[in-house]
Design a protein around this nucleic acid. Structure first.
Lengths: 253, 253
DNA sequence: TATTTTATAATGGTCCAACCATTATGATGA
DNA sequence: TCATCATAATGGTTGGACCATTATAAAATA
């Protein structure tokens, strides 16, 4: 590892760029620990404060993680997917994106994912899906008290479908969207036995379509499945005026 | 504006949270300038170095912008969409996402966008699209030397379609994906007169479908349109072994 | 010997006080 | 009236000091 002396307008930015570049070029790999701040400051011939500002930026980007104490320091992280999710969460908190927008987007993504999965699923994938379906059935039959367990299976199935596409972008985006929409589901959803069975039936339809390689059907069923949640929430919001603290997540920007 | 004295493990993180919260609560609005570092350090009862680390994080998140000189300081930004795009760019540079993955994702997004647009387009929107189509036709007829102009129109049409969905998430994502894929198009694409006319015909098909309110047809044509670019690039990469410096953007992770 | 406890040192987190570079503003002068 | 220049406010940087946390090794103990 060989660093240039830092220069330019904002020195810390130059430091950020150089360390970034080293990571891009795999001179620094995930798990590697950078030299200590006191050593780095010598390498870049800068002050510790400036160097720390650079580390703060890299940390925020999700490229490094700072560990405290002896043997600690800046450790290169694997993939900065967290910053991606954070960006979306930020836009939601700023009310630039409403729950309605997010739900609609999720509908499109999950539909596309299901369609691709139908085209690409291999026998092993179908097995995995059917095993999860069996679990889901058991929870669904035991009624709404097992909603949390059912929901967990539902979540896993969406994840598996995304993985079947073999496209990390779909895996990432569908996960991020789910993360950011999950809290609202738990906050505004009211689930009864009938709705659980509806959802289970959706999952059956999706898996069957994927199994049969019917992309269009898989897409339609997946969209319909996700749409249910939006409808449940719309209903809950109209009925109960379930206003919590602070912002209304359904208002438009 | 009233801030608590900063505390907790990492003080700068507490400062970040408080300023973030003030922005979320609209106590700080886009365009507002925060007090100077020397004043803020008094408010939070912290050192200037620590405060600056906090500002660095907020800047990286895209929530503020720092201006130099007298009358400068930290200005609250409108919407941190840049950080979203940066995150994607980062994943690409780290080769966590290949050009193939990105192209496929774009296909799905543009398809869904076109379908939604077909359902929601109003007469005014159709007019806008048809005007752009006319421009595109002129460039297409003048041959491949006008590719840049044609491409600009193409880009605008995708943007308009996204805006017709009236969903900021589709607008944002399609823009971000385009931003990050654009460079590869210019780098690896070779366009002749025939290909330009193919593309023009795609655009006609999309607009016609949108005009007719045919969501499925719009989706199909939009996907096909985007897919052309991937195919052009695959061909170019196979033929010319167009290896540039550094990383191969098509390799899988 | 094996285990627990304790000292040590390395490392990140914070603070202070100063100085430099950039820029808006107003005073000064042609 | 306009150009020029001094001034002050603000971010950018520096160096040195001290605190809090933690891994490691030494020492004490069973």
């Amino acid at each position: 590892m060989q660093f240039r002396v830092a220069q330019k307008n904002r020195i810390f930015q130059d430091v950020v760029s150089q360390i970034e570049e080293a990571i891009f070029k795999k001179e620094l790999c995930p798990g590697d620990t950078l030299p200590s701040e006191r050593e780095l400051k010598e390498m870049f011939q800068t002050s510790r404060g400036t160097l720390r500002e650079a580390l703060r930026v890299l940390e925020q980007k999700g490229l490094i993680e700072i560990r405290l104490g002896a043997g600690g320091g800046a450790v290169v992280k694997d993939a900065p997917t967290g910053s991606f999710s954070d960006s979306l969460a930020l836009l939601i908190r700023l009310q630039k994106i409403s729950l309605t927008h997010l739900s609609e987007f999720r509908e499109g993504i999950e539909g596309t994912v299901a369609a691709l999965a139908a085209e690409r699923a291999e026998p092993g994938d179908i097995d995995t899906l059917e095993k999860l379906l069996l679990e889901a059935k058991q929870y669904a039959e035991q009624g709404h008290r097992y909603w949390d367990d059912f929901y967990e299976i539902d979540k896993q199935m969406h994840q598996i479908l995304a993985e079947i596409t073999d496209n990390p972008l779909y895996i990432l985006i569908s996960e991020i969207v789910h993360e950011n929409i999950h809290q609202y589901y738990n906050q505004y959803l009211s689930i009864d036995d009938r709705r659980m069975m509806e959802n289970y039936q959706d999952l059956c339809n999706i898996v069957n379509a994927v199994k049969a390689g019917q992309a269009d059907a898989a897409q339609t069923h997946a969209q319909y499945h996700v749409r249910r949640f939006s409808q449940y929430m719309s209903a809950a919001l109209q009925d109960g005026t379930a206003e919590q603290e602070g912002a209304d997540p359904v208002s438009d920007s």
